[in-house]
Simulated scan of single mutants.
Amino acid sequence: MILVTGATGTVGREVVRGLPANLRVRVMTRDPAKAAGMFPGAEVVVGDYTDPPSLARALQGVRTAFLVTTRVDGDDDARFVSAARAAGVRRVVKLSAAGVLDPGADDLITHRQRANEDLLRGCGLQWTLLRPRAFMSNSLSWAGSVRHERTVRALYGMSPNACVDPRDIAEVAVRVLTEEGHAGCAYTLTGPEALTAVGQTRELGRLLGIPLRFEELTPDQARVALGGRCPLPVVEALLAGAERQRAGAKAHVEDTVSTLTGRPARSFRQWAQDHLEAFTPPPGGADPRR
């Protein structure tokens, strides 16, 4: 039995879809209504990291688990690992972040990821760490302004990031979850090239067949924009990460996706082509004067 946490999230849902149909798969979610009908053939269980009995039920009979946690406070990873040991789980595959390798990264999010990696390495279970760069799907946050204003707004538009397609992360995760030989390994996952927001804007414009404008946000403007959807400590961590990106800390490209899957990592153009509908202006077109 394979348990997938975060199954309704960006990577988790692709992991579930990519697992072979002949395997027993269980997905853990806090909101079963959200998962209803999403994963035919998988068992859906209600579970919450803050509810140890629910973790025990979710982990019963599980051999391998895919662990995704997003809170930067609390002890979600510790609770899960403790429950996994008690349930007799053999292996945990953890979704971490590439920033843990950057000695200059001392923000809250990176501190938490490093602590969770240390926890997993010392827990007595087999472990594998997946460390992706930023998701290409983060650019979906521009979809509304592209559709209605033909505009992308972002901080530090010329800073490069070797962002990765979440589907590639998921494909690597499926390999690690279903194959032997990955215990004790940590894999950094990137796309095939380092991209800037300005470059992504140009690519989206070419695919859409319309000119797009790029507007650079100031740090204060970015703080306000991020504050609309993230707690303040997370906002400050993201801004610190943007500063490191501007300094070139996120531009290095790895060939791990190719090595583990046998094919090249997907480009941003491929990702954007497959998600172009999200950016397409409504009938009647966008108003470029807005």
Rank of each mutant, 00 (worst) to 15 (best):
H252T: 13
D220K: 13
P211D: 09
G209Y: 02
A222G: 02
G241L: 14
P192Y: 06
C230W: 09
T196G: 08
S258W: 00
L195C: 04
G205I: 03
F214I: 11
A265E: 09
R263E: 05
C185H: 13
G227T: 07
P264M: 13
Y187R: 11
T190S: 15
L260E: 11
R263G: 09
A183I: 03
A197R: 09
Y187N: 07
P231Y: 04
G184P: 01
L232F: 00
G209H: 06
E254D: 14
A251R: 14
H252P: 00
G205D: 03
F214S: 11
G199K: 05
D220E: 15
P219R: 11
G205T: 01
R223T: 06
L212R: 03
E203N: 01
A247R: 15
L195I: 08
A183K: 05
P231E: 14
R263H: 14
V224E: 15
Q245H: 05
L207E: 04
E254K: 02
C185D: 09
E193D: 12
P211Y: 02
A194M: 04
E236Q: 12
Y187L: 15
A197F: 03
L207M: 03
T218E: 11
V253G: 12
F214M: 15
R266W: 03
K250F: 10
V224R: 15
L189A: 12
A225M: 11
A237L: 05
L207S: 04
A225R: 14
L195Y: 09
Q200F: 01
A197V: 03
I210K: 10
D255G: 10
V235A: 10
V224H: 10
C185F: 00
E203C: 09
L232P: 02
G199W: 05
A240V: 00
G248C: 08
R229Q: 13
E215D: 12
A240P: 00
C230E: 14
Q200P: 00
T256Y: 04
V257G: 13
P233W: 04
E193T: 12
G184W: 01
S267D: 07
E203A: 13
A225C: 04
V198G: 07
A242N: 08
V257M: 11
T201D: 04
A251N: 07
T256E: 10
E193C: 10
P211V: 00
S267H: 03
R229C: 05
L212P: 01
R229K: 09
V234D: 10
Y187M: 12
G209S: 12
R263V: 05
V198R: 14
R202S: 08
A251E: 10
L239T: 03
A247I: 04
E236V: 00
E215S: 06
P219V: 04
L212K: 04
F268C: 06
G191Y: 03
H252V: 11
L238A: 10
L195A: 06
C230M: 15
R246G: 02
A265P: 09
V253C: 13
S258F: 00
E254F: 08
P264Y: 06
E243H: 06
E215N: 02
L238Y: 04
L208E: 02
D255N: 15
R244K: 07
K250Y: 12
F214A: 13
E215I: 03
C230R: 15
L208D: 03
A194L: 05
C185N: 07
R246C: 01
E215G: 08
P264S: 12
